[in-house]
């Protein structure tokens, strides 16, 4: 049994993937907690689809360079975040339908562009390829985590206030848009950093699912953040192990594990879970 858990990590590429995923597990879920609180879960979908055309452009320009793909993804993610924000302000309301429109368009364009190039495997790009996690990818994941955590700590208080009551923030002269923008940059960074190991379509899973699950384990923001990190670490480790033994892509393996933890939390967690609701009614 122990051997089953340890043996995958005898391989160098598995150790690199584990180290990278653990770094992202510490950085991404706290952002997910804020995305949930800001009712922006859909935004994470938009961003993950939005980076695909950027990566495609990166490949077209510089070939299979992780730097080019990463920078392309980053630029596209930021652009789509800004456009979404601008559209929401400009047209007022109905933000969800516009976001849906944008992510469908971005994904279709991205997939079309990737398919035209033939040098890159679409499945690997969308769902992750653990074999491709080289030192550059690992440094990318660890570097993003290293930047994300201190920046999140610095903007924590205004971000909390702006998430809870943007009206109050505006009325007291706070620059709500600035904190929102810094936060979005962090989210895009984490989505892009995860794409090699997890795939663009799955890297948001490690951000959102532990965050959604954490709501069932704590009533305080700090508590939810801690639980979300713990769940993400667990999902990364178990997901990579499953991916190795069953030979399925890492992204879906990790996200399915995280999803399983979410379902478990929703059923049995101490806060607002189905079990709690049933107990309260009985």
């Amino acid at each position: 049994m122990l051997d089953l858990l340890v043996s995958p990590f005898a391989m160098g590429f598995m150790r690199r993937a584990l180290a990278g995923c653990l770094a992202l597990s510490v950085a991404a879920p706290p952002l997910g907690v804020f995305l949930v609180l800001r009712r922006m879960s859909l935004m994470s979908d938009v961003l993950q689809h939005g980076v695909v055309p950027g990566i495609a452009v990166g490949v077209a320009v510089a070939g299979l360079s992780l730097w080019a793909m990463g920078l392309g993804g980053l630029a596209a993610g930021l652009a789509i975040a800004l456009i979404a924000g601008w559209l929401a302000r400009r047209t007022g309301g109905r933000e969800d339908s516009q976001l849906a429109g944008m992510y469908l368009l971005a994904l279709a364009a991205g997939v079309a562009m990737i398919s035209m190039q033939r040098s890159i495997d679409l499945t690997h790009l969308l769902f992750g390829n653990v074999l491709a996690v080289d030192d550059t990818a690992l440094f990318g994941m660890a570097g993003v985590a290293t930047v994300t955590l201190p920046v999140l700590a610095l903007i924590w208080r205004p971000l909390v206030l702006e998430s809870f009551d943007p009206g109050f923030m505006a009325a007291t002269g706070g620059r709500g848009g600035l904190w929102h923008l810094i936060f979005l940059v962090l989210v895009v960074l984490c989505v892009v950093a995860g794409f090699v190991a997890l795939g663009t379509l799955m890297s948001v899973g490690l951000m959102m699912l532990p965050a959604i699950a954490a709501r069932h384990w704590s009533a305080s923001l700090a508590g939810q953040v801690r639980v979300s990190v713990l769940l993400a670490v667990l999902a990364s480790f178990c997901g990579l192990t499953i991916s190795y033994h069953l030979d399925i892509p890492t992204g879906p393996a990790i996200v399915m594990t995280a999803g399983g933890l979410w379902v478990l939390s929703m059923l049995t967690g101490p806060y607002a879970s189905l079990w709690r609701r049933a107990a309260a009614r009985a």
Binding site: V160, F164, D165, G167, F168, A219, L221
Partner: peptide, 18 residues
């Protein structure tokens, strides 16, 4: 106020933030 009443923050923290 259309504030999210499920937001995980304590009464004391909310008031102190102001």
């Amino acid at each position: 106020s259309q504030l999210d009443r499920g937001f995980p923050i304590s009464c004391l923290d909310l008031v102190t933030l102001a």
